[in-house]
Design a protein around this nucleic acid. Structure first.
Length: 612
DNA sequence: GCCGTTTTCGGCCCGACTGTTTTCAGTCG
């Protein structure tokens, strides 16, 4: 198991204990353990840490045990998970309570106390139970839950229900990776499975998992006599609660019967001429709601399959012609397919809608920004506010990543929960940053702040303080329930502030948790263009804010963007990757992303890197 | 469950603010 998976188990234990009404302090220990392991600097499993010994990474476990708050019980359960892949304590808890109850915690308007009451007093075990309860009217008159709260729960429930079919990339990726790793072990697979569909397009919200596996030869997916190889049976076992469909290339469909491990021919659908319907594929559901497709191909058909399955429907329909399924022995490459279609090559991230097809026809597709173009990060936190690492640690890590410059932007005083810095602490930090910058070779450290935009649009620090900073990122962290007009005015006011360089996570959305706050993006973008204020693409997988559609709007208005990590720990420096994906999906070129600038260019063109 | 002893139990608890409700749960990063 990976650190991430272990962390998720501990977090679930913590939540379940609270819902059941156990000791809150004990529950908190599990949550803290989840935090520690999530951000642990090395993988605890020997495999994941690439040590050759089987089992767990011994020195990492010792280091974990030495962490404050991690005791023997947590260590034992961690080792148990690394050795067996299971945690008996967790299994017992979920056997008693189910896992559906955890989904209720994601609802807005309720916390662990209310969910605990639903569970303990009303016997609610999942979203369906709650939905039924809401519809029955039994929730009305419940102590402590008034009309407004009820309304919020209802809306949030609808948001969650929708989310079962459309999930954030960060939630889907680990499942897809696990499936890919499981498949890769089988002898009939020639090389590691490849992501396609939503995953290959790097969509922030996925509606399915689609993988391509290249088989040794076609016999691997003809399934003659209804025989399914043992390895595939083992693979499909966890999904056998849902319908599993096998399609061969000739439009024959089979239903998989897990009891007899055999295929039963399914009544024929209407014949179709859509070549995508003729691809050999195994389709099933990850759980009740989320579809997965595993496309089977050979070396000769792999790139064609990749091409056909990467395009979103709207994009596919806009293609001038459908590529012919005939292939040569070596197979046809995607580049050759585009050439044949009379189009310039369209990067997977742009195969979302019809607009890229039109641009490919005219040869006007942008030259998209590349990961290697990124020179620095302009939004990161240390343990002075709510980051996990010290200034020295995270700067050293940024340097090791090859960054040329790195801005320290801890929270400001209003963000009390995040231990925001007051003026005195900020000025102390600025001094430390300047000292570190003078000391360290190979990277420039910038002194900044992620300043709260207050309710009225004023900033959390006076001008004479802001003037001493190299960079000011201004963000909204409170009062999310303003009207659209109020929120727009608030943010525009911050944009107009002469010392603000960048607006951080401009729409405030949290993928899978809450939608963006009401905001008139046209006005915000127009103001940013007018005032030369940069808008942020926040690379945190749970945000990915701005959304690509807004990135494109900003680009078209001539606004520059910053791809920032908002790193709260060293590992989160990797958020540059997810941020870059968004930039590419928003059609950005190198010149439109300020992190690709040299420090000198940043100073001259963005007034970043110098006190105001 | 963890920690640290006045060494085998007792204390631990992100916190200011909001909004709905009437005394407290939820929110924010």
């Amino acid at each position: 198991m990976t650190n991430h998976e272990i962390s998720a188990v501990f977090r679930a234990i913590g939540s379940l204990l609270q819902i059941r009404g156990d000791d809150a302090f004990r529950a908190r220990i599990y949550e803290r353990a989840a935090d520690v392991i999530e951000d642990f600097p090395s993988e605890l499993s020997a495999e994941a840490s690439e040590q050759n010994t089987p089992g767990y990474n011994k020195s990492a476990i010792e280091q974990l045990r030495a962490t404050p708050g991690i005791g023997k019980a947590i260590q034992d359960k961690t080792v148990e998970m690394l050795e067996t892949g299971r945690c008996r304590y967790y299994d017992d808890l979920t056997a008693e309570m189910g896992t559906g109850i955890l989904e209720l915690l994601e609802l807005r308007g309720v916390g662990v106390k209310t969910v605990g009451r639903f569970y303990q007093e009303l016997g609610v075990r999942d979203l369906e139970d709650l939905q039924a309860l809401l519809e029955s009217g039994k929730m009305r008159g419940l102590k402590g839950i008034g009309k407004k709260t009820l309304q919020m729960i209802s809306e949030s429930l609808a948001f969650r229900t929708q989310l079962r079919k459309a999930r954030p990339l960060w939630a889907v990726l680990p499942i897809a990776q696990r499936i890919s790793e499981n498949l890769a072990q089988f002898g009939w697979i020639k090389r590691k499975p490849e992501f396609t569909g939503h995953l290959r397009r790097s969509e922030e919200i996925c509606r399915g998992i689609e993988l391509i596996v290249e088989c040794q030869d076609e016999s691997a997916f003809q399934f003659e006599n209804g025989v399914v190889p043992d390895s595939l049976q083992a693979f499909l076992e966890p999904f056998s609660q849902t319908q599993i469909v096998f399609k061969t290339g000739d439009q024959t469909q089979y239903l998989y019967d897990s009891d007899s491990a055999s295929l039963i021919e399914k009544s024929q659908d209407e014949p179709t001429s859509d070549v995508r319907e003729m691809l050999p594929v195994i389709q099933f559901y990850i759980d009740q709601y989320f579809p997965a497709s595993i496309y089977l191909c050979t070396a000769a058909t792999s790139e064609l399959t990749l091409f056909l399955t990467t395009a979103a429907d709207a994009h596919f329909d806009a293609l001038p012609d459908c590529p012919s399924p005939q292939t040569t022995e070596h197979g046809i490459t995607e580049a050759e397919i585009y050439e044949e279609l009379g189009l310039s090559y369209i990067p997977p991230e742009l195969r979302q809608d019809s607009t890229s097809v039109a641009a490919a026809k005219d040869n006007t597709l942008p030259d998209l920004v590349e990961f290697t173009d990124l020179r620095g990060d302009l939004h990161a936190h240390t343990d002075s506010s709510d980051g996990r690492n010290t200034l020295q640690e995270i700067v050293a890590a940024a340097k090791a990543e090859g960054l040329e410059y790195f801005a320290i932007t801890d929270h400001s005083v209003s963000s009390t929960v995040a231990n925001g810095l007051d003026q005195k602490r900020l000025l102390e930090q600025v001094k430390q940053v300047r000292e570190l910058d003078a000391e360290i070779e190979g990277i420039t450290v910038l002194a900044g702040s992620e300043v709260d935009i207050r309710r009225s649009g004023t900033l959390d620090f006076p001008d004479e303080i802001l003037a001493q900073l190299d960079i000011v990122v201004a963000s909204v962290h409170s009062h999310f329930n303003l009207t659209e007009a109020e929120m727009t005015k608030r943010i525009v006011r911050a944009i107009e502030h002469p010392f603000v360089n960048i607006i951080g996570h401009p729409t405030g959305r949290m993928l899978g948790r809450r939608p963006m706050y009401p905001l008139n993006l046209e006005e915000v973008i127009a103001a940013a263009a007018e005032n030369d204020t940069v808008l942020e693409i926040n690379g945190s997988p749970s945000r990915l804010d701005l959304d690509p559609q807004f990135v494109r709007m900003a680009k078209d208005a001539g606004v520059l963007l910053a791809v920032n990590t908002d790193a709260h720990a060293i590992r989160q420096l990797s958020h540059r990757h997810s941020g870059l994906n968004v930039a590419r999906r928003g059609w950005l070129t190198k010149a439109e992303v300020i992190n690709t600038y040299t420090l000198e260019e940043l100073r001259e063109q963005c007034s970043i890197g110098v006190p105001s």
